[in-house]
């Protein structure tokens, strides 16, 4: 298959759109997955831990 301007056009206009949609759906699932809630809430608070040294 020759890599012509038309090939790139199709890639950008069609598959690019599907890529964007698929990608967005994956990100939304990851962000709102109920099992991730605990991990995110912990991450938010964890930076305030006053302990100033690497953990063992």
């Amino acid at each position: 298959m020759a890599l012509t301007h038309e090939t790139l056009l199709e890639g950008a206009k069609l598959w690019g759109l599907f890529y964007l949609m698929g990608f967005s759906i994956c990100v939304l699932i990851y962000t709102f997955l109920p099992s991730n809630r605990e991990r995110f809430e912990r991450a938010e608070r964890e930076i305030f831990d006053e302990d100033d040294g690497p953990w063992k």
Binding site: V27, L28, T31, F40, A43, E44, I47, F48
Partner: peptide, 17 residues
Amino acid sequence: LPKRAERPIFSYRLSIL
């Protein structure tokens, strides 16, 4: 910013999005 304000980020999920 959260460190200095001593407040957790408003929404961690929003920061990921």
